[in-house]
Amino acid sequence: MLELRLVQGSLLKKVLEAIRELVNDANFDCSATGFSLQAMDSSHVALVALLLRSEGFEHYRCDRNLSMGMNLNNMAKMLRCAGNDDIITIKADDGSDTVTFMFESPNQDKIADFEMKLMDIDSEHLGIPDAEYHAIVRMPSAEFARICKDLSSIGDTVVISVTKEGVKFSTAGDIGTANIVCRQNKTVDKPEEATVIEMQEPVSLTFALRYMNSFTKATPLSETVTISLSSELPVVVEYKIADMGYIRFYLAPKIEE
């Protein structure tokens, strides 16, 4: 028996919108820790890892570990039927081949049940070791989204370079080139508007902008984004989900032949 009641149902709606472009089908894993997912895109270039901790739910019952295979576009279709202020409850019985999403309006005058068929998904879990990153950049998520969108109108790849001067996003295409430099800026009114750069050593890596743009679908989940770079590792683009957990995107770099 599984029953997870999320008062801020809009978070789950935003999570689905953030990942459904990257991944079609995925297993949601439910354990005492929380509601989680790890899935790769079909070309094994990008990976999304989601965690919604059990403490973040108003009610969290998960009698035994359960893995539920879902088509994310179908799940998004159902969650779009929930109001932004609705409380969402996810329910499943042991051994059942369906999951139920229950939507309650804030004043309890409307209650809806949507039952979705589950699917068997063979998913390969990747072991992601804890790593030391050469550079960690925290910046406003909307700013990062704007940069990725702007650069993708010029080129297909972005070079992200971190030096003590700041973080530089560069691209090149048929019509020309573009460079956007963001300097560390802690003297802002609100902490979420700051750009903070922690650098152990300079790093420069190249990534496909198509994936970066897909990650920025998570922008509504968090005011800030953290980009962790190391020359020997995929980049991690992390959006914290207030009080509940995170959504992390990993992207393998491109290398010069």
Binding site: V45, L47, H125, G127, A252, E257
Partner: peptide, 14 residues
Amino acid sequence: HETQLRLEAFFTFN
């Protein structure tokens, strides 16, 4: 020419 690496080059399957 640039080559796109895959995640398996960095992470191992459990």
